[in-house]
Structure formats: C-alpha cells, structure tokens
C-alpha cells in the first residue's frame, strides 16, 4: 500500500469515531466482549491505482485469516481485478502490469470470496480506514453485503504505542516496514497485496502481544488502541 503518501490522507480515517463496524447480534457482541485471542481476524491489503476511493480503483486484494496466534497461510487468498483500462503512474509502486490486470478476475468474484471470509471477522490492515473505504464503495457498487465486525488498524496500534513513549513521531516511523522492524520481523517484499497482508498479520500479532502481554483483554479492549 502507498504508505509513504499517507501523511496526505490523514483526513480519510478521521471521520470514524468508532472502529466497530457492525456489532449487531449476540454472536458479534460475544466476540467483542470475549478474549481478544478468541476473535476471528482477516488481515488484508489492497493495491489501488490512486488514493481517492471516489475516482480510483482496486487493482488487487490479498487477505489471510488469523486464529490467534496462528496465521492460516493455507487459507490465504489473492485476486488481481480484471480491467481493460490503462494503468496510471501507480504501476511504479504496485508493479502490476497491464497484462496482469487484463488477465485478472472479475471484481465481483473476488469480492464475493472476500465477503465470505470477512463477514463477522475483524479486518486487520495497515491504515485500515483507507482499505475499508475502498472496499465499502466496491461492495456497494457490486451489490454485495459484507459487514466485518470491526477494523483493527496496525498503523494506529503502533501510533498509540509510540505516542505513549514519546511526543513526536518522525516521518516514516509508521510505515509497515518500519513497524515490522521494531518487532524484529524480517523484511518482506513490499507493495504486493498478499505479501503485505501476511506481513500485516504478523505485525498485528507482535503488536497485540506487546500491548496485552499476559493480561486478560477483550477484543473491545484491544480495539481501543486502534482508534
């Protein structure tokens, strides 16, 4: 994802007071109140050809389910979205070719698979608000219902944690790579939706254990760090 440009996008996430998306029903309530380890998570990353959900499109989606502390790599999924439109300058970053895009899958097809996995789960992403805005728009355009339980933003988790230690954050301290390095996680290939989704899943586990330690914490409690 285009982390280095995030500074310009600060306003995108700010409209959201709560990171709980849909907590209707007894099951979802139980998830929120229950231990954070018991919840179902899906770590996700998007490649887009721009930063504005109103005018730019999703090029690829990668996601992987988590059952703490396990990352179900064997249930990971990845889809390149089919399109015949030419690629913009963003191709420099995501490295998808027009050929890749032309041979991709229909957006609806990929979204249906994603919806199945994501419904009722906690969506984990680095700067989750950004991805969720793109997804919300895409889901509604395609007429697919998908209601995750909540958004867990690894960028916000990191921000909360760092701000408790110091008042001033340097530019670049919150990129996925910089965050991972802070937890001793190995460097990964960047700007590939699936790689970044797995990288984000690992980061989330490292952060959560760091924040929670051995204390009993509910999902709701952990989500507070991600606001």
């Amino acid at each position: 994802m285009l982390i280095s440009l995030l500074d310009k996008l600060g306003q995108l996430g700010q409209g959201m007071q709560s990171n709980i998306i849909n907590s209707d029903g007894r099951e979802r309530q139980a998830s929120l109140q229950g231990a954070w380890q018991q919840a179902r998570y899906v770590a996700l990353d998007l490649e887009t050809d721009g930063l504005d959900p109103e005018q730019h499109r999703i090029l690829a989606i990668g996601w992987v389910p988590l059952k703490v502390p396990r990352i179900a790599l064997n249930a990971a999924d990845y889809g390149v979205i089919q399109s015949d439109q030419p690629l913009s300058q963003s191709a420099v970053i995501h490295q998808l070719s027009e050929h890749d895009i032309q041979g991709g899958e229909a957006l609806a097809k990929v979204l249906k698979r994603l919806a199945k996995s994501l419904d009722g789960a906690v969506l984990v992403a680095h700067h989750a608000g950004f991805d969720w805005q793109f997804l919300q728009r895409a889901f509604s355009q395609q007429g697919i219902a998908c209601k995750p339980l909540a958004l867990m933003d690894t960028l916000k988790l990191e921000q909360t944690r760092l701000q408790r230690q110091k008042d001033w954050l340097e530019k670049g301290e919150l990129t996925l790579a910089a965050c991972r390095q802070r937890y001793g996680l190995p460097p990964v290939r960047q700007h590939h939706a699936l790689s970044d989704a797995v990288a984000c899943a690992e980061l989330f586990l490292a952060q959560a254990y760091k924040i929670v330690g051995s204390q009993k914490t509910s999902l709701k409690g952990l989500l507070r760090y991600s606001r």
């Binding site: 502390p69 990352i71 790599l73 064997n74 899943a201 690992e202 586990l205 254990y209 330690g213």
Partner: peptide, 13 residues
C-alpha cells in the same frame, strides 16, 4: 507452501 501455517510465538503463548 499451500499447506503451511505461520504462528507468532512469544513467552506468553
């Protein structure tokens, strides 16, 4: 590759 899982391990878990 298709049958792998990853697990995050620390002192607590």
């Amino acid at each position: 590759l298709d049958h792998a899982e990853a697990v995050y391990v620390n002192q607590h878990n």
